[in-house]
Design a protein around this nucleic acid. Structure first.
Lengths: 236, 236
DNA sequence: ACACCGGCGTTTGTATACAAAACAGTTGTC
DNA sequence: GACAACTGTTTTGTATACAAACGCCGGTGT
């Protein structure tokens, strides 16, 4: 199947055509495919196949693979091509540790720097998430959840922080999808999100830090359970 | 199923020549040149010139530029080539904020996970650094300083953390060199390092976190002074 | 004189070509 | 019958070729 890469870019104002680099489009598309599980951990990335699938030639594709490798999503095996990076259990744990620190910092900064409009946007997403939760719509819930955390990062006003968080998140999002929430766990996560929103509204940075750290620690437990006792990705 | 404790790859024994990818060598060389100031912020990166200088052809060079761009060291201007990423004042500040959080986490983890041998290695570097300080050798002092912080990251046992820190550090190291230490400031930095070593020796994670955060905050003040009131990098 | 326009050289973006390395299937030998 | 070496094929790693975009410079018109 052919994948439409050359989107007409409806984003920017009509003035600037915003010439996106081809390899960036390829990076984004491949990252999505990996994060969303279309390309599973360990699968071999055959250049010819991907070139045809993405409608690009080898040069931008290989540039994209190098970038994804530097992000940790792809592993380059010298003279043997590339595979989707395996998700090792220990590595996921370590990434969660880092993400915890990053989110805590973001919470502190957001309490200082966020505009009221940004907080209200997060509030809106929060209620949207509650709606999904009430209906038991897991996919929608996850989407809102991710968006809330992304917005929080944005609201911190620290771009390198948000970028770094995004990169880490891409590495573990595959695993996050695996976590199967019991109703009880799910309810608990939602209540934590309520606390997050409250602390942010009060602009209580210290409290928000603590909650965010706990929230992520709890999430880690779920993911670790879901990943099972052994490493998920194929190591070779 | 069986627990494969025996890793299929018996680590990097001396036997394996470890075939490094060409583009990785190029990335490392270019990164060094940027970090050490041979390539100053804003300078145009002409592909042909760099190809000749590095003895590689355009393909691996361009792959390297894409990777460096994803690290934030290079800025790609569509259809207009690449330049060394400018160092904006606000961005340096933000990166320091993130590095502070990362170092604090590393300190906490290192107090839990570091082996005595690792701590002793850091102690050795610390005394080496004191020697440079006593002789007023700024370059040697900086080198030891960087190594101590890198070792601390390593001792945390969290590889993604160390990698992220390295990436951030590469972005601001150019600025760090600019900081001109008065004797007083320098002495203070050294005394902070003494506190760092003490807390690590006591494995007092909470204290180490606090010290590391302060240490980096103080460093930021120096760097900001050195950078002057305006952005340093050429922004065009 | 100044502003606008078109040609020309340079540089980038992309595609393709070539060579070396790895994998698989086969065959020969022990 | 099994193991090892060989060869054909595929796939990667690198280099080069081609086309479009950009910027500069001179010319021309007002």
């Amino acid at each position: 199947m052919t994948l439409d890469l050359d989107t007409p870019q409806p984003a920017e104002a009509a003035a600037d055509p915003a010439p996106r680099l081809l390899h960036e489009s390829v990076v984004d598309r491949l990252r999505d495919m990996i994060v969303h599980g279309e390309l599973q951990a360990g699968t071999k990335l055959n250049e010819r196949v991907l070139c045809e699938a993405l409608g690009a030639s080898r040069t931008p594709l290989r540039e994209a693979l190098k970038v994804l490798a530097s992000e940790g999503l792809v592993r380059l095996l010298p003279n043997r091509g590339a595979i989707v990076a395996p998700l090792e259990r220990s590595r996921v744990k370590q990434i969660f540790e880092v993400m915890g620190a990053l989110e805590a910092l973001a919470g502190e900064l957001a309490c200082r720097n966020a505009s009221d409009a940004e907080i209200n946007e997060i509030r809106a997403l929060h209620y949207q998430m509650l709606a999904h939760h009430a209906r038991g719509e897991l996919a929608g819930y996850f989407r809102c959840n991710q968006e809330i955390h992304a917005k929080l990062m944005e609201a911190s006003g620290n771009e390198p922080l948000a970028d770094t968080y995004r990169g880490m998140n891409a590495n573990v999002r595959r695993a996050r999808y695996m976590a199967n929430l019991s109703r009880e766990r799910w309810d608990h996560a939602v209540s934590e999100h309520q606390e997050i929103l409250d602390a942010l509204t009060r602009r209580d940075g210290a409290a928000l830090q603590r909650i965010l750290r706990d929230h992520l620690a709890n999430k880690l437990v779920l993911v670790m359970e879901a990943m099972g006792p052994e490493t998920e990705g194929v190591a070779r």
